[in-house]
Design a protein around this nucleic acid. Structure first.
Length: 594
RNA sequence: CGGGGAGUAGCGCAGCUCGGUAGCGCGCUUCGUUCGGGACGAAGAGGUCGGAGGUUCAAAUCCUCUCUCCCCGACCA
């Protein structure tokens, strides 16, 4: 491609509304433009990268017997009503009505459609297993898009769905996808780790997220360097231990103490000069659960140790709640508690579901509120002073907590979820009546898995971890072009143009992708644009070199400059390109799933 | 939805406090000189100051309403 003809624009200054590095660079390099919050357009260079990423996905999906299809973005509401998600999912699901008044949705994912499709085509166990995938637009009306392409509303996703006769078959297939995902990210030059994750609104039994570690990530991960334990904070566990002296302590008599104006754990700890771990934190929530098809609100009183935080995902899952929200002060008072001085002692027990973290059961003599403004109880003991409805793990793991497998202290990192895989089970096949006839003539719902990767988010993540002060540093495998030719021709040196034109043509004929900077610009402009665009190989052709029969090659990721003879330029560039590819592929991780 | 910030030329910004009819840098156009890391000179093009209403002789500037975008939180396949 000749730069003089390319539809693009590079910017010296990033738009003021671009905050994260990848967003700034993508806009400055002319890869994408933002149209509205979370809605982007791809310019030619950006689209080339996106397509390369998607082709890698295709190859890896095909390699594990995936077959590509395309499903609609606009879908009838009826399908979503059959699985109940039309009612369950809130405003994230964009709904519209057509001219005839029919209700439609913009697809935010495709389980309903694919399950109906598979159910219609597949009748026999002989047709299973099968994996179908598509690379398609999705729309989720996110409450808050952010971070450029990291979190958007309209996006392209590779989503795959596998169908099996039984769980054993899914269990056999799932690790293949797991490895295929490492292949995809590795080939795209992105380092990821796989962590255990929550199954969320997708339902299902096992799930992994593939995370790119970066500060702009929205998820917190807990990692153990000792044994390799990795989990999203939403599901991470850790070994909880009582305070040493506390384990053997006798339960002391309950006492009320005056604590005027002390309504936070930190203040309480300071005021009474005790560690936060000797306090009990009271949290008031309202859970929405479904009972016989009807929503029901339940007041939930949660107690965790003062030095720990509630993990809402764990609690939501334990309660099988659809929603969890903080209770209003009126609601708190209605059950006999006082905001800021909440205590399990003396509340209207019949109106409350009392949940304690399992550590509370083994922590005697804690300080808790007294349900009275300005007063706390000391020596509150679970089992003696109050009886919980549930005692289970509902606290969030944090940096420093002991690993659940080996007890070594874990560390916390931020990550972007670039892909995920789920064992869905039969949730959708049952709802959509997608059954098959087994060998023995019995009918059963197909067992499903589902597997997603967002291409734009992957692209942004690669940039997040591959850039420097001058711009993007693309891995050659997904760079918009492999070679950037800088022609330093002027009016006085037509021979330089001749050589540059010829090299451009030769490289192209050899199958290399070349961006040829034939613009009438000064050298500095071209070099800076080359750096900003991040093309892996930069070939400079100037009067000096032409005189000596050489061109200069500089790799974007190094400062070294090498002279290559013009008469062997194609072979030499090809060799460097192959080496660059090999270097990226060497980073592909092979990891078997336990 | 709660909190904070911002909308003035393609991009980055000033002007607003104290009303007088819009400016700077980059980019863009033309000509000339330059030409190996974002050249120089000269001459130009480009803006309903996010939108609506109001106050005023006069509004980018003051008042009211509204839309949009960004950040933190809530939320999140």
């Amino acid at each position: 491609m000749r730069m003089s003809k390319l539809f693009f624009q590079t910017l010296r200054d990033a738009p003021a509304d671009a905050d994260v590095r990848s967003h700034q660079l993508m806009v400055r390099a002319g890869l994408v433009r933002q149209v509205a919050a979370g809605i982007f357009e791809y310019l030619p260079l950006g689209l080339r990268v996106k397509k390369k990423i998607e082709n890698i996905m295709r190859e890896e999906m095909n390699a594990i017997d995936g077959q590509e299809i395309v499903m609609p973005v606009v879908q009838p509401a009826a399908l979503w009503k059959r699985t109940g998600r039309w009612y369950e999912i809130g405003d994230d699901l964009a709904r519209l009505t057509d001219r005839a008044g029919r209700e439609l949705v913009l697809a935010m994912t495709h389980e309903e459609v694919i399950t109906e499709l598979a159910g219609g085509v597949i009748n026999s166990y002989r047709q299973l297993p099968v994996m179908l995938y598509q690379i398609q637009t999705k729309f989720r009306d996110e409450p808050r898009p952010r971070g450029g392409l990291i979190r958007v509303r309209e996006f392209t996703m590779k989503d795959g769905y596998s169908f099996h006769t039984d769980i054993a078959s899914l269990d056999e297939y799932y690790p293949l996808v797991y490895q295929a995902y490492f292949n995809i990210f590795g080939r795209a030059g992105l380092e990821v780790i796989a962590v255990e994750s929550d199954t969320g609104m997708m339902g299902g039994t096992m799930a992994h997220e593939f995370m790119a570690l970066t500060e702009v990530g929205e998820d917190t991960l807990l990692l153990c360097d000792e044994c390799g334990y990795k989990a999203n904070r939403q599901v991470a566990t850790f070994v909880k231990s009582e305070n040493e002296d506390q384990a053997v302590e006798e339960a002391l008599p309950l006492e009320e103490v005056s604590t005027p104006g002390v309504n936070t754990i930190a203040a309480l700890s300071d005021f009474l000069e005790i560690p936060q771990s000797r306090t009990a934190k009271a949290l008031f929530l309202v859970a929405t659960t479904e009972e016989e098809g009807e929503d029901k609100e339940q007041f939930v009183f949660v107690i965790v140790r003062g030095d720990m935080d509630l993990n809402e995902t764990k609690l939501t899952n334990a309660l099988k709640a659809r929603q969890l929200r903080p209770a209003h002060p009126e609601e708190i008072r209605a059950i006999g508690a006082e905001p800021g001085y909440g205590s399990p002692v003396g509340i209207h027990r019949d109106q409350v579901l009392l949940v304690v973290d399992d550590l509370i059961v083994r922590s005697p003599n804690l300080v808790a509120g007294a349900n009275r403004d300005g007063w706390h109880y000391t020596n509150v003991n679970c089992g003696r002073d109050y009886e919980p409805d549930l005692a289970l793990d509902v606290v969030a793991a944090s940096a420093g907590h002991p690993c659940p497998l080996c007890r070594a202290p874990m560390r916390a990192e931020r990550g972007v979820e670039v892909g995920n895989i789920f064992k869905l089970g039969t949730k959708y096949s049952e709802a959509m009546d997608a059954t098959f006839l087994d060998e023995d003539g019995s009918s059963a719902p197909m067992v499903m898995g589902c597997y997603g990767i967002g291409s734009g988010r992957l692209m942004a993540s690669v940039i997040e971890s591959n850039n420097d002060d001058n711009g993007i540093v693309w891995p050659v495998t997904i760079a918009p072009h492999q070679v950037y030719i800088v022609s330093l021709a002027t009016r006085r040196t037509p021979e330089v143009t001749e050589v540059a034109d010829r090299v451009y043509q030769q490289l192209q004929e050899a199958g290399l992708e070349v961006l040829y900077d034939d613009r009438d610009e000064r050298a500095g402009v071209k070099f800076n644009d080359a750096d900003l665009l991040g093309i892996p190989m930069r070939l400079t052709i100037g009067a000096r070199g032409v005189k000596n029969g050489v061109a200069e090659l500089k790799l974007r990721r190094s400062d070294e400059i090498n002279e290559l003879p013009l008469d062997d330029i194609v072979n030499q560039i090809q060799a460097v390109s192959d080496a660059e590819s090999a270097a990226v592929l060497a980073g592909v991780i092979t990891e078997s799933l336990q």
